[in-house]
Design a protein around this nucleic acid. Structure first.
Length: 157
DNA sequence: CGTGAGCGT
C-alpha cells in the first residue's frame, strides 16, 4: 500500500568502548622522548647568514665594474679583494660581484652600508658569500710519492 | 639584445 520510507537509523553503534579515548588521545604532550618529524633540511640555499669577510653583491648594473664596486664598498671598510663577475666568453658583466673585506666587522659594515643602496641606477644587494669551491686535496694518480710534475725536466739519460 | 635571478675566470 503506502510506501513508507523506513529509514532505519541503525544508530545502535553509539556504544563507545571505554578506554579508547585514553589510548588515542593520550594527553601526554610533554613526552621528552618524542621525536618530531624533521622536514628536509635546507641543503644549500638557506637565508644568507653565513659569517664571512667575503661579500656577495648582486643587483649590480651591467655597467658596474670591479673598480666601481670596490670604490663603493671601500667607504665602509678596507676592501682586500673585489671582483665583478664577468663572462670570459664575451667579457660582459653578469650583474653581480664579490667584495672581500679585511675583517668580518668591515664586511658587516659594508653590507649594512651598501645593501639596498643604489649603484649605477640599480639597487644592489650585499650579503655574505658562500665558500666558493671546496678544498680539493692534491692527489696524484700514482700514489707512490712521485708526482708527474717532477718529471717535466727531461733527463738526458 | 646588456632582457635582471644569482654565488666567481
Amino acid at each position: 500500500m503506502a510506501m513508507r520510507a523506513a529509514i532505519s537509523k541503525a544508530a545502535s553503534a553509539a556504544v563507545a568502548p571505554r578506554g579508547f579515548r585514553a589510548l588515542l588521545f593520550s594527553t601526554e604532550r610533554t613526552s621528552p622522548l618524542f621525536t618530531p618529524p624533521q622536514p628536509p633540511a635546507q641543503n644549500q640555499t638557506p637565508p644568507p647568514a653565513e659569517p664571512s669577510n667575503n661579500l656577495f653583491v648582486s643587483g649590480l648594473s651591467k655597467r658596474t665594474t670591479t673598480e666601481g664596486l670596490r670604490t663603493a664598498f671601500e667607504k665602509f671598510g678596507k676592501v682586500t679583494d673585489a671582483k665583478v663577475v664577468t663572462d670570459r666568453t664575451s667579457g660582459y658583466s653578469k650583474g653581480f660581484g664579490f667584495v672581500k673585506y679585511e675583517t668580518l666587522e668591515e664586511a658587516a659594515a659594508g653590507i649594512k652600508g651598501m645593501d639596498g643602496q643604489f649603484l649605477d641606477g640599480w639597487v644592489i644587494f650585499a650579503e655574505y658569500a658562500r665558500p666558493r669551491s671546496p678544498p680539493p686535496p692534491p692527489q696524484n694518480s700514482f700514489g707512490n710519492g712521485y708526482s708527474n710534475t717532477s718529471f717535466q725536466g727531461r733527463r738526458p739519460y
